Amino acid sequence: SNREKAKQAFKELLRDKAVPSNASWEQAMKMVVTDPRYSALPKLSEKKQAFNAYKAQRE
C-alpha cells in the first residue's frame, strides 16, 4: 500500500541521515525536516509511529 511505502521511505530517511536510536523526536526532526521524504507521511502521528518503529529496530 501507499501508506506502507511512505512508512518505509520515512524510515529510510532516518537511516540515511544516521539518526541515532536514542535521539528524541525533536532532535530527529531537526535532522530530517529539510528532506523531501519528510513529507511522505502526511500525519504527524504516522511520522512518530514510524520513528518509534525505527528506534525499536535500531536498538
Rank of each mutant, 00 (worst) to 15 (best):
W25T: 10
L14Y: 00
M31T: 07
P36G: 05
M31R: 08
T34P: 03
D35C: 00
Q27G: 06
V32C: 11
W25P: 09
P20L: 02
V32Q: 05
Q8I: 12
E59D: 09
K55E: 07
Y38E: 05
W25F: 15
L44H: 01
K55H: 08
R3N: 15
S45F: 09
D16F: 00
A56C: 04
A56L: 14
F10T: 12
K47L: 02
K11P: 07
E26G: 08
L44F: 03
N52Y: 09
R3G: 12
R37V: 03
K17P: 03
S39H: 14
N52Q: 14
K30L: 05
R15K: 11
L41K: 06
S1T: 13
V32N: 07
A6W: 00
Q27C: 05
P20S: 03
K55D: 08
R58F: 10
L44K: 08
V19P: 04
R3D: 14
V33L: 11
L41S: 03
E12R: 02
P20Y: 02
Q27P: 03
M29A: 11
S39N: 15
E59V: 14
V19W: 02
K7L: 14
S21M: 14
Q49D: 14
M31P: 08
P20D: 05
A53P: 04
E26V: 06
E59M: 15
A53G: 08
Q49S: 10
N52R: 12
K11W: 14
R37E: 04
A18D: 14
A18M: 11
K5H: 09
S1I: 12
A40V: 12
K7S: 13
S24C: 06
K30S: 10
A28C: 08
Q57F: 03
M29L: 09
N22C: 09
V32S: 07
K55I: 11
R37W: 00
K7P: 02
V19G: 04
P42G: 10
A50N: 02
T34M: 12
K48M: 13
K43Q: 12
L44D: 08
K11A: 15
M31V: 07
S21G: 11
E26K: 10
V32K: 10
F10Q: 07
S39G: 12
A50W: 02
K47D: 05
S45T: 09
R58W: 14
D35V: 00
A23W: 10
S24W: 00
V33N: 15
Q49P: 03
Q27T: 14
V33I: 13
P20T: 05
P42D: 13
E46R: 00
N22K: 03
W25Y: 10
A56F: 03
E46T: 02
A23C: 09
K17L: 02
A18S: 12
L13T: 04
L44P: 08
R3P: 14
L13S: 07
S1E: 09
K7N: 12
A50K: 01
V32W: 01
A28M: 02
Q57W: 11
N22A: 10
N52D: 13
E59H: 09
F51E: 03
A53C: 10
T34Y: 09
E59R: 10
M31G: 09
Q27Y: 03
E46D: 14
K47T: 04
K7D: 13
K5T: 13
Y54N: 04
A6V: 07
E4M: 05
T34V: 05
R37T: 01
N2M: 05
L14N: 06
R15S: 09
A18P: 02
D35H: 01
P36D: 12
E46V: 01
N52H: 12
L14D: 03
M29K: 15
Q8N: 02
E12S: 08
L14G: 05
K55A: 07
A6K: 09
Q8F: 05
K55Y: 02
R15C: 10
E59C: 09
F10W: 00
Q27H: 12
E46M: 05
L41A: 04
R37C: 01
A9C: 12
A40P: 01
L13H: 05
L13D: 08
Q27F: 00
P42R: 07
N22W: 12
R15L: 11
Q57P: 08
A28R: 02
R58Y: 15
V33R: 13
S21A: 15
A56M: 11
N22E: 14
K47Y: 03
A40W: 02
S24P: 10
R3L: 14
V33E: 15
E12A: 09
R3S: 14
K48H: 07
P42L: 08
D35I: 00
A9F: 03
K7I: 12
S39I: 03
A9Y: 05
L41T: 09
P20N: 02
T34G: 15
A9R: 06
N22F: 00
K17W: 04
Q57S: 14
A40E: 05
R37N: 02
D16H: 00
S39W: 08
K55C: 15
S24H: 07
L14E: 07
V19C: 02
A53N: 12
L41Y: 07
T34A: 14
L13Y: 03
A9D: 14
W25S: 11
A56D: 13
R15I: 12
M29V: 11
A56E: 14
P42A: 10
Y38D: 07
F10D: 09
A53W: 02
N52E: 15
F10E: 12
A40I: 03
A53V: 08
E46Q: 10
E46W: 00
Q57A: 14
L14I: 00
P36L: 02
K5L: 10
K5R: 10
S21C: 13
N52I: 14
R3E: 12
K43M: 11
W25E: 12
L44W: 03
K47M: 04
E26F: 01
Q49Y: 03
E4P: 03
R15F: 14
S21R: 12
N2D: 14
Y54E: 06
A18L: 11
L13R: 04
M29F: 07
D16I: 02
S1A: 13
N2V: 00
K30E: 14
A53R: 04
P36V: 06
V19F: 00
L44T: 07
R37Q: 04
A50Q: 09
D16R: 01
P20E: 06
Q8Y: 04
L41F: 00
